[in-house]
């Protein structure tokens, strides 16, 4: 995975409110600097077809559709795209703004990186916590000892 994909992934998974806050700062900064923010594709809700490679014959089949929302923007001629699961159009737009800011090396690039990194770190921590709660449910069989 490249650094860009890490960013896109972090933005796709980031909390809606957090990504909107960063995007609002980016747009406000762009406006005050006279930088053009252009909506290439307004947010649209649609589906991604989830295909599975089943493990017995290694062949693909379709499990279901997943509802997603995607958007695309351009800041100072640099495009940013986003796709998020669900139907939060505002957050999709915000993620696209953040990605464009990252790729154009805009003044808020660091905030975008921080948000993506924080999101991915939080995901790891959440899983570690979940695993700790699961460990007590692991079956440990008692051994029946034979008398010699």
């Amino acid at each position: 995975m490249t650094h860009g994909e890490n960013i896109a992934e972090g933005l796709a998974l980031a909390e809606s409110q957090a990504v909107i806050e960063v995007a609002d700062r980016i747009v406000a900064g762009a406006e005050s600097d006279g930088v053009v923010v252009h909506v290439v594709k307004p947010p649209e809700t649609g589906i991604v077809v989830a295909q599975i490679r089943e493990p017995l014959a290694q062949k693909r089949f379709i499990l279901a559709d997943v509802q997603t929302v995607q958007a695309e923007v351009e800041i100072a001629g640099v495009r940013g795209w986003s796709m998020r699961m669900g139907s939060d159009r505002h957050a999709a737009m915000a993620s696209a703004v953040c990605e464009a800011e990252y790729f154009r090396n805009g003044p808020h690039r660091g905030q975008v990186q921080d948000l993506a990194a924080k999101t991915l770190r939080a995901r790891e921590q959440k899983r570690a916590q979940q695993w700790r709660s699961l460990v007590p449910t692991i079956v440990e069989f008692e051994e029946v000892l034979e008398r010699s």
Partner: peptide
């Protein structure tokens, strides 16, 4: 009613 955007990358159950 939803537009089909894409196919996912094949999900590996492992």
């Amino acid at each position: 009613t939803l537009t089909r955007f894409a196919f996912s990358e094949p999900i590996e159950p492992d």
